[in-house]
Design a protein around this nucleic acid. Structure first.
Length: 498
DNA sequence: GTTGAGCGTT
């Protein structure tokens, strides 16, 4: 017997009745279907007159102690918890939400299923990650024998991301979940990493982490060694990262400048950018302003680059992670599959948007968090500039947190600030939705403490990426017994900080 | 009732 719950976008708005589930919970997906971008619910406590948050566990909103009652519940949006000072981005909530409607889930292919696994079992397994809209096991039409793979579809992007983030022990076998080839290039990438210039030597990674944590969860801090007067800070929420770009902040009494994380280069030092400097985009750091040492700038337009990458390929098909023809976007094409240069890009569905720079770029910029916090399309720039900036933002490199890739040489550039258990513990700890329930109330927009913490953003942090992975093994994957099976591993290569 | 990288009878 499901009943209905009155939910309004905000106080004073017309409520909509939403059906609750049999267990009286309200599916976040149900909520999000009517209020795209919502990340939670709140209601006004009649006694204290204060707003109260509704418990959210694994995609289900749980009623207060005495049931839902008759009061009206209000949506909580990530945007609303953001600081106000990002108005320069002109990211209206409405626009953000509109964007989010485009954050559709994709079918996901599940590889490596045991022959005996049924669709029902498949569904049941993945339901611990969120609402499963579809589950199928591909079978031989004649014999009915499973082909050993299947497809699933989730109701929420977050669930999808969670599932893509790890391997799955299904019915006794490790299975891979990936974006199907047929869906390639349909998912977006987002930069979560910012460049912090004018750092002083006494700024430790923890200082930066502490400082920037007030804006959102910091998943990574990278400070090059030896001292180079800059750092990289990676946020869980890409929009937070974006919102900080162009700003000056005082840390330890020193004014530092935040800008887009620098672009990366391929081993030959070629530029990936389309030539439009990031600085042209507006408030972001202009060319040359962020690089204390002015390394040879491989960017188009001669913008100074903070650093570049060195790719070490250990066998396997070479190829840079960014195809020149793609204007800097990770293409995720077949040539890249399995290339550690973009380890989990494909798995995470974070692939390029070749058309981004051309037409309709803005609407293609979506948020893999599924929380709708990023709205690059609303930036006061034209799509081409956005695309150009993004090309240089150093997005795209997603490391594999499972710890089987980075160790063994990849961690040489990340002596500290990585592999922080506090930030890596989120994922892979339990299939049943790690820490959502424990997420601090204020952390809306961040699906739990460690959501996506495993993501290694940006090539800029190549060394850091590796380091993060290196820090993870054994500490963040209690459920992962031993190492990741080597199935499908084709090569090893590393990104090394230059 | 075998097999173990892959890619979906709509």
């Amino acid at each position: 017997m499901s009943s209905y719950l009155q939910v309004a976008e905000d106080e004073g708005e017309e409520p909509i009745e939403l059906p609750t589930e049999d267990d009286s919970t309200l599916l976040l997906s149900t909520l999000a279907a009517q209020f795209p971008g919502t990340c939670g619910l709140k209601y006004r406590n009649p006694e204290s007159r204060a707003m109260r948050g509704v418990r959210l566990v694994e995609g289900r909103l749980h009623p207060p102690e005495n049931g839902w009652g008759n009061c009206v519940y209000y949506c909580v949006f990530p945007k609303e918890n953001k600081r106000k000072s990002d108005d320069h981005l002109e990211n209206s909530t409405a626009k953000t939400k509109r964007m989010e409607t485009k954050l559709k889930c994709s079918d996901l292919i599940v590889l490596g299923l045991p022959w005996k696994t049924t669709e029902q079992q498949l569904r049941e397994y993945f339901e611990s990650f969120g609402e499963v809209l579809m589950a199928q096991v591909k079978k031989d039409p004649k014999s009915g024998q499973s082909k050993g793979f299947g497809f699933i579809r989730f109701g929420t992007y977050e669930s999808q991301m969670r599932v893509l983030a790890q391997r799955h022990m299904i019915d006794g076998r490790w299975c891979d979940v990936k974006i199907p080839n047929s869906k390639e290039g349909q998912i977006q990438q987002v930069p979560c990493k910012v460049f912090v210039g004018r750092c002083t030597e006494d700024m430790q990674s923890e200082d930066l982490r502490e400082y920037f944590s007030k804006y959102g969860e910091v998943t990574d801090v990278f400070i090059p060694k030896p001292f180079r007067a800059f750092a990289f800070v990676t946020f869980l929420d890409p929009e937070i990262a974006q919102g900080l770009c162009g700003e000056d902040h005082i840390i330890k009494g020193v004014s530092v400048h935040v800008s887009n994380a620098a672009p990366k280069t391929d081993p030959n030092g070629r530029s990936y950018g389309g030539g439009a400097g990031v600085g042209a985009g507006g408030p972001r750091g202009g060319p040359g302003t962020r690089e204390p040492k002015n390394l040879a700038g491989p960017f188009g337009g001669g913008a100074g680059t903070a650093h570049h990458y060195h790719h070490q390929h250990h066998g396997g098909p070479g190829g840079s992670n960014m195809g020149a023809g793609a204007g800097g976007w990770n293409q995720g094409g077949p040539a890249n599959r399995g290339n550690i240069d973009m380890p989990n890009l494909q798995a995470l569905g974070i692939t390029g948007q070749p058309g981004a720079a051309g037409g309709g770029g803005a609407q293609n910029m979506n948020n893999p968090l599924g929380m709708g916090t990023l709205n690059l399309g609303a930036l006061p720039m034209n799509p081409a500039l956005v695309a150009a900036a993004l090309n240089q933002a150093g997005w795209g490199l997603i490391g594999n947190l499972q710890g089987n890739q980075a160790p063994g040489g990849g961690g040489d550039g990340a002596p500290q600030g990585f592999g922080n258990p506090a930030t890596t513990a989120g994922f892979g700890t339990a299939p049943a939705g790690p820490q959502q329930g424990a997420a601090p109330p204020a952390a809306t927009g961040q699906a739990g403490g460690g959501f996506l913490s495993w993501m290694n953003q940006g090539a800029a942090g190549g060394a850091g990426d590796a380091g993060q992975g290196a820090g993870a093994p054994g500490s963040n994957t209690p459920q992962q017994p031993g190492s990741w099976p080597q199935r499908g591993s084709k090569q090893e290569s590393f990104l090394k900080y230059d």
